[in-house]
Deep mutational scan, measured.
Amino acid sequence: RLTVMSLQESGLKVNQPASFAIRLNGAKGKIDAKVHSPSGAVEECHVSELEPDKYAVRFIPHENGVHTIDVKFNGSHVVGSPFKVRVGEP
């Protein structure tokens, strides 16, 4: 089962990169992540390998409000996905 680490749920800033990590815990497959902005825009997140069992997911929010992040592994949502994060002040 995958572990999502260091996902900041609030206090993110517009046009500043945000990232979190995913540990695969021995699982093999493909991570896919997309961020949905409050206006409905959908953007791919950048996924990069940090070490053999750990990946970083990076995105840049372009507007204030609550964004939804879909994180999928081999086509299925990971536990807790979709995640909600707040950009800007509430």
Score class of each variant (00 low, 15 high):
Arg1Gly: 05
Arg1Pro: 01
Arg1Gln: 15
Thr3Trp: 07
Thr3His: 15
Thr3Ala: 06
Thr3Tyr: 11
Thr3Met: 15
Val4Arg: 02
Val4Asp: 10
Met5Tyr: 15
Ser6Trp: 13
Leu7Trp: 03
Leu7Arg: 03
Glu9Cys: 01
Glu9Leu: 04
Glu9Phe: 03
Gly11Thr: 13
Gly11Met: 12
Leu12Cys: 05
Lys13Val: 04
Lys13Leu: 05
Lys13Cys: 13
Val14His: 03
Asn15Ile: 00
Asn15Glu: 08
Asn15Trp: 02
Asn15Tyr: 09
Ser19His: 04
Phe20Tyr: 01
Phe20Pro: 00
Ala21Lys: 15
Ile22Arg: 00
Arg23Phe: 07
Arg23Lys: 15
Leu24Thr: 08
Asn25Cys: 07
Asn25Lys: 10
Gly26Phe: 05
Gly26Asn: 08
Ala27Cys: 09
Ala27Tyr: 01
Ala27Pro: 04
Gly29Ile: 01
Lys30Asp: 14
Lys30His: 12
Ile31Tyr: 02
Ala33Glu: 00
Ala33Lys: 00
Ala33Ile: 14
Lys34Gln: 13
Lys34Val: 10
Lys34Asp: 06
Val35Thr: 05
Val35Ile: 13
Val35Asn: 08
Ser37Tyr: 06
Ser37Glu: 02
Ser37Gln: 07
Pro38Cys: 08
Ser39Gly: 09
Gly40Thr: 04
Ala41Phe: 11
Ala41Leu: 12
Glu44Trp: 05
Glu44Leu: 04
Cys45Ala: 04
His46Gln: 15
His46Ser: 13
Val47Ala: 12
Ser48Thr: 08
Glu49Phe: 10
Leu50Ser: 13
Leu50Arg: 12
Leu50Ala: 11
Leu50Asn: 13
Leu50Thr: 11
Glu51Trp: 04
Pro52Gly: 10
Pro52Ile: 14
Asp53Leu: 03
Asp53Arg: 05
Lys54Met: 04
Lys54Trp: 01
Tyr55Asp: 08
Tyr55Phe: 07
Tyr55Asn: 12
Ala56Asp: 12
Ala56Lys: 09
Val57Glu: 00
Val57Pro: 01
Val57Trp: 02
Arg58Asp: 10
Arg58Gln: 05
Phe59Thr: 02
Phe59Met: 11
Ile60Met: 14
Ile60Pro: 00
Ile60Phe: 10
Pro61Trp: 00
His62Glu: 14
His62Cys: 13
His62Ser: 14
Glu63Tyr: 09
Glu63Cys: 08
Asn64Val: 13
Asn64Asp: 12
Asn64Phe: 08
Gly65Leu: 02
Gly65Asn: 07
Gly65Ile: 00
Val66Met: 07
His67Pro: 00
His67Ala: 08
His67Cys: 14
Thr68Ser: 10
Thr68Ala: 11
Ile69Glu: 00
Ile69Asn: 00
Ile69His: 00
Asp70Tyr: 09
Asp70Met: 07
Val71Gln: 00
Val71Tyr: 02
Val71Pro: 00
Phe73Ala: 03
Phe73Trp: 03
Phe73Leu: 03
Asn74Phe: 09
Asn74Lys: 04
Asn74His: 06
Gly75Tyr: 07
Ser76Glu: 13
Ser76Lys: 14
Ser76Gly: 11
His77Cys: 08
His77Tyr: 12
Val78Ser: 09
Val78Met: 14
Val78Asp: 03
Val78Thr: 09
Val78Ile: 12
Gly80Asn: 12
Ser81Glu: 11
Ser81Pro: 01
Ser81Thr: 05
Ser81Lys: 05
Pro82Asp: 01
Pro82Ile: 02
Pro82Leu: 01
Phe83Thr: 05
Phe83Pro: 01
Phe83Ser: 06
Lys84Pro: 06
Lys84Ser: 11
Lys84Arg: 09
Val85Ala: 10
Val85Thr: 14
Arg86Ser: 13
Arg86Thr: 14
Val87Tyr: 01
Val87Asp: 02
Gly88Trp: 01
Gly88Leu: 05
Gly88Asn: 07
Glu89Gln: 10
Glu89Tyr: 08
Pro90Arg: 02
Pro90Asp: 10
